[in-house]
Write a protein that binds this DNA or RNA. Sequence first.
DNA 1: AACTTATTCAACCGCGGAGAC
DNA 2: TGTCTCCGCGGTTGAATAAGT
Length: 395
Amino acid sequence: MGRSPCCSHEELRKGAWTVQEDQKLIAYIQKHGTGSWRTLPQKAGLQRCGKSCRLRWFNYLRPDIKRGKLSQEEEQTIIKLQAVLGNRWSSIAKHLPKRTDNEIKNYWNSYLRKQFEKNAGDSSSPKPISSDSSPESKSNDMCMVPLEKTDCHEPNTNQSHQHKLSKSTSSSTHLLNKVASKILASGYLEAIKSCQPVVAGNSKSEGVVKSGIGPQKDNIRDPLVPNLTSPSHSVTSAKLLNKMATSLPHKVYGLEAVKAVFSKLMESSEKGGIATSDGSSFVGSDQVGSCLNALSPFEDGPHISKIIDSPSSPTLMFNQVTTPSCFSEDNEDNWQCVSSNYVSFRNCAASGGGGDCSVSEINLGESSSSTSCFLFENADLGTCDDEIRKYIQYL
DNA sequence: AACTTATTCAACCGCGGAGAC
DNA sequence: TGTCTCCGCGGTTGAATAAGT
């Protein structure tokens, strides 16, 4: 029944690692890669628990670890992300290339937290999220997207890459489906569908909620299901994905915020959007954009400026985008830099096996006041999760 | 120089989610 | 379906070092 025990607890060394132990571990991982931490110590000739080996490798021995004092930029990133994510050190670490969660955690506990305590009186400073889980933070977790490990944090071995891919595949698909099921269960799929007529600019949404939006509003009522009589209103999963992704970065505010966004989209659709030459339309960039920006947890982070709800390439437009580490040139597994500001997606369709999804391009903009453009085509929630994961992580 | 206190950071511990059986 | 293990995460500890007296 079940698996065999992780490691027998007899004769296992504890405490500080010796140089010899380090060398054994490095040599083994260089030859065989990471994975199967349970059996690794035995194979590597180490009298350590696999857990201890893993920790030693990820926090200390990996070749791609940056040591030394954190820069002011990194410090600001930590402060900002801690305010949004709380003590999710591994998630925060993913935004700081070559830094470990342990290092960030230590830095926070030994230095940054004290700074906060010192500046407690300064109301303009961001406030750290306490580690004790308030009911609010617990409920927010319901919609929290785990930011999984990126290539820039993993040793570059085929084995580990395959391992990671298979794991993240199931988890992100699971996650997205979970969110989708929540929306479905709440009847909000119909609300999403109601965005479809926006493209043609002929929607007639009925019973749209006109209430205020945003997390601070607790008077948001459920948007009523619009009158969808035509089967042509079928929503593509690409659209669904974009709608979900639009809401996910605002997950800290919970499902109510998602509902608010959708209801605002519906409200906007009533007004017809802004027609463009190719037959698509901006979905009320003013209303929706300001709505989404209001929900953004980032004071000066990416804000959504507009949505192009084109049938072939639904698009979210962002401004104030900073290029995240996972889009760096280091990650040539998935990204191909065409220029410093323009990135094309590569091998996207292949990753799903079915070739259903492709993110045709991502434009990271041209300047500091840049816009970023995501183009999803024929997305299938079940098959392109690695790309979705990156996309959501970026958000 | 000796002692005390503060700080840093590697490592341990326990928990929970996900998957294996 | 239930039990068990693996893995990853966040909280905490404690040894080593630095700074202060």
